[in-house]
């Protein structure tokens, strides 16, 4: 865990409200599913913003994020060579070492980016990965998944691409040993519910309002079958059977 300043290498807007921010990796090793707390300001706004890792190598840390409020608006104004403060890598990430066989990654909206690096690494260790990507009205990051996944299935709420509806409508859980999901809670709950009769083990990556990102403030605690768990430190990835879903 480190808190340091780094530099924006590239910043691109890819949809009406989604950006890809590449920063110089100051020699940090990350696990897919982990996130960083980011800020490009001094003391206002108060909190840093939790953003998941989209891609990472030894040179670049890449974040794909949606502009939703004050913090992400400020981040979206960053230009090449601007400074940015990063705290991380935060949280546990997906248990890549334990995963094998047939795997589905199921993402919705800005829950899709963290699954990109995850599926790349899984295919590198000879897992067979299918991607299920759910969008509302604008699609993004599809080519990333096409590069390494067996198949990429898409749903859009407005029907502009793939199946019209929700990503959970097209998921066939019985085909998989593991399902990794990230997106709106309602979507992940549906994934868990739909997979109840299958043998698949499901890992969910949760999103939560956070203050410290370190596990100290208990602002992001959730009640689980293992007692109170901190999304920032004990998660964000939890195996579904410990969640009260």
């Amino acid at each position: 865990m480190h808190c340091l300043e780094t530099i924006v290498v590239k910043h691109t807007q890819i949809t009406s409200d989604i950006f890809v921010l590449d920063v110089l990796n100051p020699d940090l090793t990350t696990i897919p599913g982990q996130f960083f707390m980011l800020k490009s300001w001094d003391t206002e706004p108060t909190f840093m913003r939790p953003i998941s890792i989209y891609k990472a190598d030894d040179k670049i840390l890449s974040f794909m994020y949606r502009v939703v409020g004050k913090g992400t608006t400020l981040i979206s104004l960053l230009k090449e060579n601007d400074k940015i403060k990063i705290l991380g890598p935060c949280g546990n990430g997906y248990p890549i070492q334990e995963l094998s066989g047939k795997i589905a990654v199921v993402g919705g909206g800005v829950g899709i980016p963290p699954l990109c690096q995850t599926s790349k690494i899984l295919t590198e260790k000879s897992c067979s990965v299918d991607a299920y990507l759910g969008y509302k009205d604008e699609v993004f990051a599809i080519d990333d998944f096409k590069k390494h996944c067996n198949s990429v299935l898409i749903s859009t709420e407005n029907g502009i691409m793939g199946t019209k509806g929700f990503v959970t409508d097209i998921l066939t859980p019985e085909k998989y040993d593991y399902i990794l999901t990230c997106g709106p809670e309602i979507m992940m709950r549906k994934v868990v519910e739909k997979s109840k009769k299958s043998k698949a083990i499901i890992y969910c990556s949760l999103e939560h309002r956070m203050a410290c990102g370190l596990g100290a403030c208990l602002g992001c605690s959730i009640k689980t079958n293992l007692g109170m768990q901190r999304v920032c430190k004990d998660g964000p990835v939890f195996v579904s059977n410990i969640l009260n879903w």
Binding site: T43, E44, P45, T46, F47, R209, G219, C220, S221
Partner: peptide
Amino acid sequence: RIWETASGM
């Protein structure tokens, strides 16, 4: 449990 406010929380 936590909520950002102007110059605080």
